[in-house]
């Protein structure tokens, strides 16, 4: 579980708006996706990527993960975006329209070349592919396995519904199959799954319902279009107090078990073994991020001493 990173909230910020960029440090979302793609008009593509580069270079006390959504690599802007922005060291690239494994592989190769040129560790730049078409959803498994840089799969419902020639509804029934397929691919690969945006900024109840649905299905985070949405999303993803208490009991029980030389023990009449411990560890790490427990659980508690 080394390298566990909480990604409940990934906030989009337009790359061509200095007033919004300068507020990035203040919001307590887990990640920011600075957008060079859809939010930026064609006439500002060039200016925006330089603005973003300078913002990143000056943002030295980084307090959240920084991703940049580049333009698709088959447009004339995609490569330039990488060339200008990567030297300013974002944490990763959100790749739009990742319809096939080959598209992701191409980005992977480019990132390796830039890493060599910039003399940074290979694999430093992560990839968050957007599955946002029927083709992308069908190829989810292949895409998840196309690069070791991929830390999560993101589902994009707006483009997906367009590619399906359907409307997006408030209940989201039409997205169910696609959401599930993206999840399966992510979970099979052991990476995170990030749900699509909820566009109506004034409808907090709708946002809460949709986030609760995504969480129940297995999503670990959600993309956001407005900072006002952060609080609701964090609230949904926060573990409940009784879950935290139970998780603490599980960890204590398994530590007792190890002292007794076994990996299985009963807690309140139920068996505690590796999968239960793993789930408890995940709850406690999330609880730590929410300030609900004071110490971060260590690896030894989860896996036992080597």
């Amino acid at each position: 579980m080394a390298g566990f990173k909480l990604r409940r909230s990934l906030l989009y910020v337009p790359g061509n708006m200095p007033s919004m960029l300068q507020n990035i440090p203040i919001f307590n979302c887990d990640s920011v996706i600075i957008d060079l793609e859809d939010a930026v008009p064609l006439s500002e593509k060039d200016a925006a990527r330089h603005l973003v580069r300078h913002f990143l270079l000056n943002y030295t006390d980084r307090n959240k993960e920084l991703l940049v959504r580049i333009n698709p690599l088959d447009t004339k802007w995609g490569y330039e975006d990488l060339k200008v922005v990567l030297p300013a060291m974002p944490d990763g690239i959100r790749l739009p329209k990742a319809d096939t494994p080959e598209i992701v592989e191409r980005l992977d190769t480019l990132l390796t070349e830039f890493e060599e040129e910039l003399e940074v560790e290979i694999g430093r730049f992560g990839i968050l592919p957007s599955l946002e078409s029927a083709l992308g959803v069908i190829n989810a498994v292949g895409i998840a396995n196309s690069s070791e840089r991929i830390f999560a799969l993101a589902f994009g419902a707006e483009d997906y519904t367009a590619s399906m020639e359907i409307e997006r509804s408030r209940g989201g029934e039409e997205l169910f199959n696609a959401r599930t397929r993206v999840l399966w691919a992510a979970k099979a690969k052991g990476i995170q799954a990030v749900d699509t945006i909820f566009a109506d900024v004034s409808d907090m109840e709708g946002l809460r319902n949709e986030t609760e649905l995504a969480k129940r299905l297995g999503y670990t985070g959600k993309c956001l279009v407005n900072p006002r949405q952060i609080e609701v999303v964090h609230d949904v993803f926060a573990p409940k107090q009784h879950e935290v208490e139970y998780a603490l009991q599980v960890i204590e029980a398994i530590q007792r078990a190890r002292q007794l030389g076994t990996g299985v023990i009963a807690l309140g009449g139920k068996m505690v073994d590796a999968p239960v411990v793993k789930r408890a560890a995940r709850v406690l790490r999330t609880a730590y991020a929410h300030g609900m427990v004071d110490t971060l659980i260590d690896e030894e508690a989860i896996h036992g001493a080597q």
């Binding site: 507020n23 203040i26 919001f27 307590n28 407005n226 900072p227 006002r228 609080e231």
Partner: peptide
Amino acid sequence: TTDPVGLQIAS
């Protein structure tokens, strides 16, 4: 306020 900065301060 609906301004995200104002709401952050309030929070």
